[in-house]
Simulated scan of single mutants.
Amino acid sequence: MRVFLAVARGESLSRAGRALRLDPATVGRRIARLETDLGARLFTRSPLGYELTEEGQRLLTHAQAAETALAGARDALHSGPGGLRGSVRIGAPDGCANYLLPQVVAAICDENPGLEVQIVALPRVFNLSRREADMAIAVSAPEAGRLSVQKITDYRLHLAAARSYLDRHGPIRSMDDLRGHRMIGYIPDMIFDKELDYLSEIGVQTVGLASNSVSVQLNWVRQGTGVAVVHDFALPAAPGVVRVLPQAFSLTRAFWLIRHGDDRRLGRLNRLAEALTTGLRRELARLEAQVPAP
C-alpha cells in the first residue's frame, strides 16, 4: 500500500522510488505484483507517467484510510509523557522558513529531544494530498481539498532600501518618486499566490531585479541595489536596511497553518501544531517590535 500510494502521488516510478528510497524497477515490480494479487489494473501507463484507473481510484480511498490508521498507531507510540517524538516535515514559503521557523522549531526541539523536524522552503504551494509535508504554512487559505486550515497571525510589509542606496540616490519623499528607482521583486510569471503580487498594488510595471526567493530579494536590498517590499520581521536580520515611506505604503498579510484533514485525529501533530502556532506568533511579534516606528 505504501508503494501504491507513492506511485499514485508521484505519478511516476522514479518519483515514487525517490520518496521510498527504492529503485524504480523495484517499485514497478511491486505494483505489478499488487495488480496481480488484486486481479485489477490500478494504473494506466503512458509516456507521461502513471495515472490511476477507476479501480485504482477506488483503492486509493482505502489505502489512505490504512495510512491514517498506521499514522495513528505511530502517534500513540510517540506521544508519551516524555514529549513529542518521531519525524515531522513542515513546508513553508522561504520568507517564513528563513526568518521565523528556524528559531521557533529549534525551541520546540529543545523541549522535545526525541523530535526530528525537517523544514522544506519552497516558493510554491505544497500539495498535502501527495504528502509532500505533514503540515504547511501558506500565505492564503486554500478553498478546496480535505484540509484543516488555521490562521496563525497577520504580518506587515513595507517598502525598504539600504541606507547606502538612499545616500547615493537621494531621499524618496513620495510614491511618485519610486519611478526613478530600480525596483526589486518577484519574477512576474512565477508569483505562485496572488497575495505575493505586492508591486502591482503600487502600479510598478517593471522589476529591475527579480527572484522567486524572498532571501535573494532581501540580499539585493542589503547590497544597496534597489527598493523592494520587505517583511518587517526580516528587517532585524538586515542591518542598514530601513523602511521607505512607511506612512504612505503598508501591507498586511497572514500566515495559515494547513494540515491534511485526516491528521486532526493525531494527538502528536495537534500538539506540534499548537506549539508551532504559539511560537510563530510570539517570534513574529518580537521581531516586528524591533523595527523603528515611522
Results as ranks from 00 to 15, higher is better:
residue 246 P to V: 11
residue 6 A to T: 02
residue 98 N to F: 05
residue 264 R to Y: 07
residue 116 E to V: 07
residue 270 N to T: 12
residue 270 N to K: 06
residue 145 G to A: 05
residue 171 P to K: 05
residue 125 V to N: 08
residue 119 I to N: 03
residue 239 P to A: 11
residue 176 D to C: 08
residue 207 V to P: 06
residue 215 S to P: 00
residue 57 Q to D: 06
residue 128 L to S: 05
residue 12 S to P: 11
residue 118 Q to V: 13
residue 75 D to S: 15
residue 28 G to L: 00
residue 215 S to W: 15
residue 74 R to S: 07
residue 259 R to C: 13
residue 95 G to Y: 00
residue 129 S to K: 02
residue 32 A to M: 05
residue 63 A to C: 07
residue 288 E to N: 08
residue 276 L to R: 11
residue 102 P to M: 03
residue 118 Q to P: 07
residue 96 C to Q: 03
residue 151 K to F: 08
residue 198 Y to P: 01
residue 142 P to K: 02
residue 279 G to T: 04
residue 96 C to T: 11
residue 11 E to W: 05
residue 75 D to K: 02
residue 69 A to N: 05
residue 148 S to M: 11
residue 190 M to F: 12
residue 172 I to N: 11
residue 117 V to K: 00
residue 150 Q to H: 10
residue 206 T to M: 10
residue 277 T to L: 15
residue 6 A to W: 03
residue 291 V to L: 13
residue 111 E to Y: 03
residue 25 A to H: 04
residue 31 I to L: 09
residue 272 L to W: 05
residue 230 V to K: 05
residue 74 R to P: 01
residue 174 S to W: 00
residue 17 G to Y: 07
residue 47 P to N: 04
residue 289 A to N: 09
residue 241 V to D: 13
residue 272 L to D: 04
residue 268 R to M: 01
residue 256 W to T: 04
residue 165 Y to F: 15
residue 72 G to A: 03
residue 208 G to Y: 09
residue 236 P to H: 09
residue 252 T to Y: 08
residue 71 A to I: 00
residue 74 R to M: 04
